[in-house]
Design a binder for these strands. Structure first.
Lengths: 203, 203
DNA sequence: ACCTGAACACCGTTCAAGT
DNA sequence: ACCTGAACACCGTTCAAGT
């Protein structure tokens, strides 16, 4: 009788239920039409209950965006681990993972980069920095192997980040719906863009 | 006595006053905190007056975003006109103009690409397509001169667009505030990123 | 410790009525 | 033709009160 499934005055794990429900709501209605009151309704609590768990809407958005950056970080480090002796492959996989994550979760991506978060807490800043550091590590592995022209890893990482970020954003904003329609077209084009970029960066 | 500066019941040119005021408001408070009621207050009319000129908030956002895309188009075509015999230079200038416009008007850029517009009217879609066509023309000029490796202009244009778009978005979202601080750093980095990309595209 | 209901100051949008 | 005021159905957030 530790955890009861039946309804009771106390929810039990409202915090994480709210996060899950919030992501679903943002996904279905967009971050703009999302409301705390509808979230509460969805979670079957009074519209003030969420404020026991999040200081305000911005704090909730911070936490969701932070989760997004953590996932991104993991994928960057995985890209390195999965291809320990092939730095070129590390970079390709990191870029592919970035686009994949962004196109799978366009709403979270918009939350992360679309200016919806007013006060960007230092935990969120750290999560964002970590993700970038993950990509930086991938580039530095390539430099250690002597495959790149430039010795400035920041610049190379920024070029890679910009390219995949831009492509991912254009897709999730629907800007390319005439040009790119299927998932296969997305992964194919990602590979081509990465190849062009690598071609410009390799020795 | 054609145009009176004095206050009167009829405003005269409320439509364009509203657009100007809306851009200023979005700039100072972000697209999320923008409200139609505050806009009306700013324009010194009743809070329902704007609805004589815009069907709703979304229609206003559409018009502002459309203006942004039109500016972008112009800059793309200018990049071609300004360097009639140098297709490489056309591409560099187009990219620089893109980043410049986005960093000068981060809020309009967010409106254009951040998912704030629910119903994207066909005029807005056309304005966006026009801007892309402008960049495509620049790439095609380069192909006609035989400078690029690939024969697929769409792919090359998309690579260019993604790179500069991603960089511009990262900056306007404040994602690079540790790495890039001054305007000069932005223009310098833009040039470097463009050079890397060109290096990957040129024959 | 956790949740609720009433309350306040906001929104977007509509519509009959005024100039 | 253009603008206003009242009205409606929403928001985010606070706070005293309930379990």
């Amino acid at each position: 009788m530790k955890k009861q499934a039946k309804k009771s005055y106390h929810h039990g794990d409202l915090h994480s239920s709210l996060v899950t429900a919030a992501i679903a709501l943002i996904r279905s209605k967009g971050p703009n039409s999302f409301s705390m009151r509808e979230l509460a309704k969805q979670a079957e609590v009074s519209h003030t209950a969420p404020y026991r768990h999040f200081k305000n809407k911005n704090a909730l958005f911070n936490e969701i965006a932070q989760g997004g950056f953590q996932q991104l970080s993991e994928r960057m480090y995985q890209a390195a681990e999965n291809n320990p002796t092939e730095p070129k492959q590390q970079m390709l996989e990191a870029g592919t993972a970035y686009v994949e994550l962004a196109t799978k979760n366009p709403e979270i991506t918009q939350l992360m980069f679309g200016g919806y978060i007013e006060d960007c807490g230092k935990e969120l800043t750290k999560a964002g920095d970590d993700a970038f550091k993950g990509l930086l590590a991938v580039i530095e592995n390539g430099q250690a192997a002597g495959i790149y022209q430039s010795t400035d890893s920041m610049t190379l990482a920024l070029a890679t980040w910009s390219m995949v970020h831009g492509f991912a954003m254009l897709i999730s904003a629907g800007q390319l719906k005439n040009e790119i329609k299927t998932k296969k077209q997305i992964t194919d084009m990602t590979k081509i863009l990465e190849t062009i970029l690598l071609n410009g960066m390799l020795k």
